[in-house]
Design a binder for these strands. Structure first.
Lengths: 342, 342
DNA sequence: TTGTAGGCGTTATCAC
DNA sequence: GTGATAACGCCTACAA
């Protein structure tokens, strides 16, 4: 084992400085009420620096009964959305001296991951892309939790305004004159998707536009899902003229299906995504979308979590909701003039 | 604080079972040489299960002098490549009961991250996309290390055969009749990129094809980098007929530049990437590439690391190299017949 | 077969 | 001002 062999302990520093070990600890923690002789402090600090003493955070954790680590649980990285969220989260956590324990669903399920995190005395958990409501009630007991992209009365949360995203999508497409609109999205319990759909449907209804059942297509929140779903839509006798997708991956899959079928965007069909991941600018035409600040979500989630850890939970859990932003690129446009076929 | 309040300890189990705490420990660790009365074991196990006892892994770590956690350090998630590697790594680690501490470069540099990991008594570290040779010699001392995609005499490593990837790229493009070939890649010290370039150049040279300096373009290993680089190539008096890119992101950027410039792939130009990330199938035509098994790299890296942790380092560090695989899609093709312009 | 003693590296609370 | 002493929760001897 190469590990943990000759690590320098506070006791070692104490020995060399000719003081007791607790004194070293007292000085090193810079405790305000540490009333130590200046020359002692000097000497201890010098020696500690010389021999490169670094406190064992595990030992600190044991006595402090907290680990200075947080867990982040995500469904998977196939969706770059979570990669970005994670990136923002890691940055803030690292700067604050917290470690990020990464948990991806798949090998272990959420509950197992939560248990593993508990066993490590995790200080808090961030849940992204996983519906807290599908978990057993006790699963999150006694944990500091921040939810991403799902409002909750029980837990703190930060997310984009999914309902509004749906509304904006509807407004954008209606504004182009579309009246036969479709939606592609998962039937999953993930709140963000449900709210996007609901916002979209409500806005359509408010505008007096109805969406027949055949135009709501269920699909995995993935490229493959979007592709399959769009194929179904294209096979319809009467196609939609515009499609809002639950997220960009789905939209990109739909985009691809159109390319394969020779359907020209946005002339024959408009496609609108949601999230604004990098891939959106890769395709031709580039994908219009409703942008969510992904890294910012991760960053804020951690800040919220750290505050909760350090100040204790609030009576009423804070909920930050960030405004979505419409990004018009090339995949959406006005409805084609009938009969003006090229 | 919601944390660590009423956690059940082994002592508590012992009290209820009417045995001593070490006995509980003895039974729970399922130590082979634990010769305990069957009924005692029975009772302890039952009570432990009843009150939901779970050992504190931090305390275990303290005495075991290891944390059952590994660190993974990556440059960033902007490149889905690392997301996939991470995904593979996390899966194996989680199944083995190890935690994954995620470190992204940026907020903290590698050295700071390494220190933070050391302080947490990390059992080992996986380095991806970061040249170990650029680190101070002592930075990785006394650590179990596995490098991804960079061979090393000092550390264990797992990676694709980058040199061969370059060779295969050359063979593929030469096979289509291309003789004016370009390379786009970073000037970075990341070994994988250097080897891909070297393999490519060497294979060309071996085939008697030279690559003038103007056809080797330096660019960030990103979409933006590839885009800018391809613009430069397209501005050349005499354009290349085929381009090999250091990775898929660069290739996608190049792909995009061609789309914008009206250069038709693969008729006017062939583009070949490397890695095989999901995005490659999103563009039209889909990107041909040299595939590397990304999740597998992550998974193997962890397995190698765990073995090293559990069995101690080998005299000669193991190096697994996985064969790259050519994936021909639509972005590469035969050189256009001169004069046969459409 | 089981309990007692000691220690892992800290921090916190006291006497001195 | 400083140094014992006692946790934190667990594990590994060794005694009983």
């Amino acid at each position: 084992m190469r590990i943990g062999k000759g690590r320098i302990t506070a006791a070692e520093v104490a020995r060399r400085a000719g003081v007791s070990q607790p004194t070293v600890s007292l000085i090193l923690t810079r405790n305000p009420k540490a009333r130590v002789a200046p020359e002692t402090r000097e000497r201890v600090l010098r020696i500690a620096a010389e021999i490169g003493y670094r406190p064992n955070r595990l030992a600190q954790a044991l006595v402090a009964r907290r680990s200075f680590a947080i867990g982040v649980i995500v469904p998977g990285f196939d969706n770059p959305f979570y990669a970005r969220v994670l990136s923002g989260a890691e940055k803030v956590a690292a700067e604050a001296g917290y470690a990020v324990l990464l948990c991806e669903m798949g090998a272990l399920d959420v509950l197992q991951h939560l248990n593993a995190l508990r066993d490590r005395q995790i200080d808090g958990v961030i849940l992204a892309g996983i519906a807290a409501s599908t978990l057993p009630a006790a699963a999150l007991d006694d944990l500091n939790v921040v939810l991403i992209n799902q409002p909750s009365t029980r837990f703190a949360s930060v997310g984009g305004d999914s309902l509004k995203a749906g509304t904006m999508a509807a407004a954008h497409l209606l504004g182009f004159g579309h009246r036969r609109l479709a939606f592609i999205g998962p039937a999953s319990s993930i709140p963000a998707f449900r709210f996007r759909e609901r916002g979209f449907v409500q806005a359509l209804r408010a505008a007096g536009v109805s969406m027949p059942g055949e135009l709501v297509v269920r699909a995995d929140a993935s490229i493959a899902g979007g592709l399959a779903a769009m194929r179904r839509l294209l096979a319809l006798r009467e196609r939609p003229t515009a499609v809002f997708c639950a997220n960009d991956l789905v939209a990109l899959g739909a985009h691809k299906a159109c390319g394969a079928a020779g359907v020209l965007l946005p002339r024959d069909l408009s496609i609108l995504g949601c999230d604004d991941i990098e891939m959106t600018t890769l395709v031709t035409p580039e994908l219009s979308t409703i942008a969510l600040p992904q890294r910012e979500l991760g960053a804020r989630a951690v800040r919220l979590l750290l505050r909760q850890i350090e100040e204790g939970p609030r009576e009423t859990p804070p909920a930050q909701v960030l405004p979505p932003r419409l990004v018009v690129r090339g995949s959406t446009g006005p409805v084609a003039i009938p009969g003006a076929a090229s």
